[in-house]
């Protein structure tokens, strides 16, 4: 067994550089949140994610797209087929060309993706003072710090410290790298009113929308966590059996 420990230590030692690499970059302190999806048994709080969708729909979707999210994906959040259709029906998408060769607008279907707020990147820049609002489909995975970073960023707007020269059109944010962000402060107390009466102070709203964005980024997280537990338990069973079998086979060998 001593050898196994040695081997395990060696494996960990080899992985150290990457772990250090992951931990090192971010110097800003992020207030770590308790997320329902953290941990071995963690999964999305579907009601929270639905509230977060309301925030996205009412606020973020004016500028930010979610190109990888399709209406059908909402079935994973507990929407019925009819509810998904009704939701999709609130949106219009461009289809075509039709028999006359024209592009046309039609109501969205379950298989459609959420429409983009702007027809193209140039239009998005033009409408936002030259800054391109990034697509948010993967944002919680694409930033160092993950969901905690997004949550903290949304709440980290404040007056710039004395002597800090803020470029015109930018906003001071103490979490954003470089502290100057094009997006103005959006999240505030009472920004949205939830149908389920959940608290809607800035912190809760930021948390809900972050949970929603993480669901969009990693929609298979629930399945991954539950499958993982079963796979690990099964592998453990095999490993124990293999150890016993190995001991039995080696019983008569002096080594």
């Amino acid at each position: 067994m001593r050898n196994i420990l040695l081997v395990a230590t060696a494996a960990v030692a080899l992985a150290i550089p990457s772990v250090i690499n992951a931990a090192e970059e971010h110097e800003v302190h992020l207030a770590k949140q308790e997320w329902s999806f953290n941990g071995v048994l963690g999964k999305f709080d579907k009601e929270q994610v639905q509230r977060g969708f309301q925030v996205y729909k009412d606020v973020c979707s004016a500028c930010h797209s979610l190109q990888y999210l399709a209406f059908r994906n909402f079935e994973d959040l507990g929407y019925s087929e009819e509810q998904v259709k009704a939701l999709a029906g609130q949106y219009e998408v461009t289809d075509g060309p039709n028999d006359e060769g024209e592009m046309f607008k039609r109501k969205a279907k379950a298989s459609d993706h959420l429409p983009h707020p702007f027809p193209n990147d140039q239009a998005a820049r033009a409408a936002n003072g030259g800054a391109l609002p990034p697509d948010l489909s993967l944002v919680t995975k694409a930033r160092e710090g993950g969901p905690d970073y997004i949550y903290n960023l949304l709440l980290a707007y404040e007056e710039p410290p004395k002597g800090f020269e803020l470029l015109p059109g930018l906003n001071y944010n103490k979490v954003f790298p470089g502290n100057q962000i094009a997006m103005a402060k959006q999240i505030q107390d009472g920004l949205v009113t939830y149908a389920d009466g959940a608290p809607n102070d800035a912190a809760h709203v930021a948390k809900d929308v972050t949970a929603f964005l993480h669901w969009v980024a990693e929609p298979k997280l629930d399945a991954r966590h539950s499958t993982g537990l079963r796979v690990l338990l099964y592998t453990l069973l095999f490993t124990v059996l293999a150890y016993l079998a190995k001991r039995r086979i080696w019983a008569k060998i002096e080594h």
Binding site: A8, L232, T235, T239, A242
Partner: peptide, 12 residues
């Protein structure tokens, strides 16, 4: 047999 055990630990 020994490798099967080793693979098991590694897979964990």
């Amino acid at each position: 047999a020994k490798d099967a055990f080793g693979v098991g630990v590694f897979l964990l």
